[in-house]
Design a protein around this nucleic acid. Structure first.
Length: 590
RNA sequence: GGGGGCGUGGUGAAGUCUGGAGUUCACGCCGGCCUGUCAAGCCGGAGGUCGCGGGUUCAAAUCCCGUCGUCCCCGCCA
C-alpha cells in the first residue's frame, strides 16, 4: 500500500488470517512477559495486537511507548480464550517475524490515552501528541467528514466554491478586527475578515448565483468554550432566492452531515419558531428544545390580585410568568438559592411554590394568593402534586430572560446524544442599544420584511433574518439581503450612518448594487460548533487542531510573539511608551 | 473591564478549611524477574524551589497581599 506497509490495522480481519502483513505505526503499549512480548500497534486505522515470540524474533529491539515502528508478520486468529472483546481487532493478532524501530520517542509529557485528560495547556503545548489520542484523531476525522459532506452536497446542487480575500477592509461596527499593517502604504491597514459577507453579495452581482466557501473568519473578541478568535464557517449565498431556498439548502447540508457523523436521518423540514416566541417561551433567541419547561404567561391569572408583589408589577406594565420545573425535592436552601440566582440575573425576586397533594401550595406567598389564582397557576402550568413552580413578575424581557436562564440551570442535558434543531425566524431588523439608538440585529445588509414597516416603526420591524439553533447553541445565521440600493440607503439612514459616511466606507459595495443586483439570500454555519456538538465535546477547542487559549495564545508556538524593531520600522509602526514600559523595554528601544 | 474555579515529582489526584519534617495514592520513567498478556503482574529505584514575588509566624503547600498562567461565566461576540 505504501513503501512502509501493506495493510492498515483497520484492513485486517479474520478473513485475512494466514496473510502476510507489513504494518507501520506507533507503539501504544508494550506488555513484555519476559519471553513473549505483546505490542498494541496504533496507526490511523486503529489498534492491533502484535505478538513478538522469541523463537520468531530472537533479537527484538527495545520497544517503548510511542516508538514509531515497522512490523512484518502473519495475521492469525488469537488462541481460544485470549480474544479481547473490548478491541475492534480483538479476535486476531499479528505474529511478528521482523520488527524495526523507525524512530524512537523520548519519555512522554503525558499519556496518549483517552481515559486520562492532562491539563489542557500541556495538551496544547504538545498538541501533536494530543492529536494521537483516538478521541482527538476521531475529532479530526469528523471535521474532515463534515466538510466533505458539505462539499459533496453543495457540488451536487450546482454550487460554485469561490474564495474571497482574507486581507480586507476594517469596519468599525461589529466585533473587533484583527489588523494587518500595510508595508507598501504605511499607516494603512488591512483587516482579517469577520465573514465574507460583502464579497459574496458581490458574487451575486457577478452572476455566480450559487456560491459557497469553507471560510476562515476572525474576530478579536474574548473566547469562550464555544468561541475562538479564528474559526471556520460554511458560507453560502444564492441568487433569486428567498428564505425557503436557504432553509431547504441548509437542511440538505445539515442532514447529510448528521447522517455521516451520527448515522441518523434528520426528519425534515426542521421545526421553526419565531424570534418573539423563542424569547417569550424560552427567554432566549437560541432555545434548547431537548426539554420542555417552557415559560408560561400568568399575567391574566393574577389580574386584580391582592398579592402586591405581583399586583404592583402588573400595574406598572410588567408581566407575571412562570415555569413548571416538574417534580423535584428541593430543600429550602436550594429553593432560596434559586431566588438568589434570579436576583443575580436581574429580577426583583422569584416566587417558588410546591404543589401539595390536596392541590394547595407550599410557598412563602401562599397566604397572599386567592384560591382562583392558585388554581389558575396550576392549570396554566399543567402542574401536578409534587411539582415545583417558579414565578417571576417583572418587565417582559426580564421575566423571560431570568426564567430562561433558570430553565437551563435546571433542565439542560449535559450530553448531546439527542439532537434538536430549530430555525428561529423573524428576527427584528434592529435592536436597541443601551443609549436608545438602533443597531442591526443581524447586519445592516439584511432585508426588512416590509420597507414601509421599517420606515414607520423601525424598532419593531421584522427582518428576513433567521438563525439555526442546535441544542441551545447558535449554529449559524442568515438572511435575505437588501438588493436595492435605495433600501440599503434607508437602512443606513435609520442606523444614523450618513450618505457620505456610507459612501466612504461601503461605496465600493453600494456601487456594485447599482448594476442589476439579483434578489439574493444566504447563510453561514459555524463548522467548529456543529462538529463540537455532533461529537458531544465540551469545548470547541477539542475539534480545532491547533486552538488558542483564552488569552489568545498558542502554547505550542508561543504566538503571539514580539517582532524585530526593524519590522515595525518598515511598517511605520512605533509602540507606545506605555507598551514599551509594560514590555520592560528601555525608552526608545524596541 | 468584571465574577468565580484551578496551579503540589513527567502526568492525574489527595493534602490547604483547622500552619508543625516534601507526606500519600495511581500512571509514567529507570533497573531486575516473569512465555498468552491486553490499563499485564511481582520486586527495587530515581524524580518535586508545592506557579512566581512579598508579608504574618518560632514554623507556610496550608493564612494574608500582589502577580502570572489556565479554565468557566458576565460584559463583548454587526
Amino acid at each position: 500500500m505504501t513503501t512502509y506497509r501493506t495493510h492498515l490495522t483497520s484492513d485486517l480481519s479474520l478473513e485475512s488470517a494466514g496473510d502476510r502483513a507489513k504494518l507501520a505505526g506507533w507503539v501504544a503499549k508494550v506488555r513484555n512477559l519476559g519471553g513473549v512480548i505483546f505490542i498494541d500497534l496504533r496507526d490511523s486505522g486503529g489498534l492491533v495486537q502484535v505478538v513478538v515470540d522469541p523463537e520468531s524474533v530472537p533479537t527484538a529491539p527495545t520497544l517503548r511507548m510511542e516508538y514509531c515502528v515497522s512490523v512484518e508478520g502473519t495475521v492469525r486468529s488469537r488462541p481460544e480464550g485470549t480474544e479481547n472483546p473490548g478491541m475492534k481487532t480483538g479476535t486476531l493478532e499479528v505474529a511478528a517475524d521482523r520488527i524495526e524501530v523507525l524512530s524512537r520517542s523520548g519519555p512522554l509529557p503525558f499519556m496518549i490515552d483517552d481515559r486520562i485528560d492532562a491539563d489542557e495547556q500541556i495538551r496544547l503545548r504538545y498538541r501533536y501528541l494530543d492529536l494521537r489520542r483516538p478521541r482527538m484523531a476521531a475529532n479530526l476525522a469528523a471535521r474532515s467528514t463534515c466538510i466533505r459532506a458539505i462539499r459533496e452536497t453543495l457540488d451536487g446542487l450546482g454550487f460554485l466554491d469561490v474564495e474571497t480575500p482574507t486581507l480586507v477592509n476594517s469596519t468599525p461596527e461589529g466585533a473587533r478586527d484583527f489588523l494587518v499593517p500595510s508595508r507598501l502604504r504605511p499607516g494603512h491597514f488591512y483587516a482579517l475578515p469577520q465573514s465574507p459577507q460583502l464579497f459574496k453579495q458581490l458574487l451575486m452581482v457577478s452572476g455566480v448565483e450559487r456560491y459557497y466557501q469553507i471560510a476562515r473568519c476572525y474576530r478579536d473578541e474574548d473566547t469562550r468554550a464555544d468561541r475562538q478568535v479564528e474559526f471556520t464557517q460554511l458560507d453560502l449565498e444564492g441568487s433569486f432566492w428567498g428564505r425557503e431556498d436557504v432553509f431547504s439548502t441548509i437542511e440538505k447540508v445539515v442532514a447529510e452531515v448528521v447522517r455521516r457523523l451520527r448515522g441518523v436521518d434528520l426528519p425534515l423540514p426542521l421545526p421553526r419558531l419565531t424570534h418573539s416566541e423563542a424569547l417569550s417561551r424560552y427567554g432566549t433567541d437560541k432555545p434548547d428544545l431537548r426539554f420542555g419547561m417552557a415559560i408560561s404567561e400568568l399575567s391574566r391569572v393574577f389580574e386584580g390580585t391582592g398579592f402586591r408583589g405581583f399586583g404592583n408589577v402588573l400595574a406598572g406594565g410588567g408581566v407575571v410568568r412562570g415555569i413548571n420545573a416538574g417534580p423535584r425535592s428541593f430543600s429550602r436552601a436550594e429553593l432560596d438559592g434559586l431566588v438568589d440566582r434570579a436576583k443575580q440575573l436581574g429580577a426583583a425576586g422569584l416566587v417558588w411554590a410546591v404543589v401539595k397533594d390536596d392541590g394547595s401550595l407550599r410557598s412563602p406567598v401562599a397566604k397572599f394568593l386567592a384560591l382562583g389564582e392558585i388554581d389558575g397557576m396550576i392549570r396554566v402550568l399543567e402542574a401536578s402534586p409534587g411539582d415545583v413552580l417558579l414565578v417571576v413578575a417583572d418587565q417582559p424581557e426580564v421575566a423571560s430572560a431570568v426564567l430562561g436562564a433558570i430553565r437551563l440551570d435546571l433542565g439542560k442535558p449535559s450530553d448531546h446524544d439527542r439532537l434538536h434543531f430549530v430555525w428561529v425566524v423573524d428576527f427584528p431588523v434592529f435592536d436597541r442599544t443601551d443609549g436608545g439608538g438602533l443597531t442591526p440585529s443581524h447586519h445592516p445588509f439584511t432585508a426588512p420584511v416590509s420597507v414601509e414597516e421599517m420606515r414607520e416603526r423601525p424598532a419593531e420591524a421584522v427582518a428576513h433574518a433567521y438563525d439555526l439553533v442546535l441544542n441551545g447553541s447558535e449554529l449559524g445565521s442568515g438572511s435575505v439581503r437588501i438588493h436595492d440600493p435605495e433600501t440599503q440607503r434607508e437602512v443606513f439612514e435609520i442606523l444614523g450612518i450618513s450618505a457620505e459616511e456610507a459612501e466612504s466606507r461601503f461605496g465600493w459595495f453600494l456601487e456594485g448594487l447599482r448594476y442589476g443586483t439579483p434578489p439574493h439570500a444566504g447563510f453561514a454555519i459555524g463548522i467548529d460548533r456543529l462538529v463540537t456538538i455532533l461529537r458531544d465535546e465540551p469545548s470547541i477547542r477539542e475539534v480545532i487542531p491547533f486552538p488558542k487559549t483564552q488569552s489568545g495564545a498558542d502554547p505550542l508556538t508561543t504566538s503571539p510573539t514580539r517582532v524585530a524593531g526593524s519590522q515595525l520600522t518598515e511598517l511605520g509602526i512605533d509602540l507606545t511608551a506605555a507598551t514599551k514600559a509594560a514590555l520592560g523595554d528601555a525608552a526608545g528601544a524596541s
